[in-house]
Amino acid sequence: MIARFAGFFVASVFGLAFVLINSGPPLPSGVSMGVRGLAVAAAVAIVGLAVLGMRKESRTEAGDASAGAPRFGAFFGMVTTIEVLLIIGGAQTISRLDSIPDQAGVAWVALVVGLHFFPLAWHWKQPEILTVAWYGTVLGGIGLLMALLGHPDWVPLVSGVVTGAGFLLGPLVVLVLMLRGTGASAVSQSGSSPSPK
């Protein structure tokens, strides 16, 4: 049962981390605090709604509750390992090259996180994950271009805060729709959330 909702929990962690780490300057301090507060509230709501969803399914769903759930086996482990190695290697490379602003590291992380969803969507046969994949990849790529073209100050907002907000808002909307019954059958058939893991 929990495997079907694991993506929601992971999305809340990733989204919250992206927002909390990157919602600083050039945003005014008051705005930063507000954005962080909203992110915490969204993450808590995701966890609470996912727990409610699991309870609802355990009462109403017959048969194997794990059918269609993401499989966290060797392929998932390989993709995650490559993701971590690329993030660490890219961050170290960026920090050592004076020609690349440090803010490019945020964009690199968003790019790699976005890219790692593509093989998972294929392996799990869950095309809805492609939305998250494209979202993170595009915002990461935009941030890298901004950093390389001499506009690094807003990269944490674009590739960090906006990416994190999407990772929080997407699953939150799907959970609300699931619990209201709208679109619940589609998610139940696929056994997935729109989030990656």
Rank of each mutant, 00 (worst) to 15 (best):
V109L: 06
L38K: 03
A17P: 05
D102T: 11
Q126E: 10
V138K: 04
V31I: 13
E57A: 08
G140S: 00
V51T: 09
F5N: 13
S99E: 15
F118K: 01
P70G: 08
D102K: 07
G73D: 15
L169I: 12
E128A: 14
T60C: 00
F118Q: 01
L115Y: 04
D153H: 13
L27H: 00
I46F: 02
G143P: 02
G160L: 04
W134Y: 15
V158G: 02
M54C: 07
D153E: 12
G37W: 06
V44P: 04
M54L: 09
L139H: 06
S32Y: 14
T137I: 03
P152Y: 09
R71D: 15
L144Q: 06
V187I: 14
A41D: 02
S192C: 04
A62E: 15
T81V: 14
V10L: 10
G181W: 03
V44K: 03
G160F: 00
H116L: 03
A45Y: 03
M178D: 15
V176Y: 01
S29F: 14
A62Y: 12
A42Q: 02
V13L: 11
T93S: 14
G141T: 09
I21M: 07
F9Y: 11
W134F: 13
F8V: 02
V161A: 09
V155Q: 08
V106A: 11
A104Y: 12
D98N: 09
E61N: 05
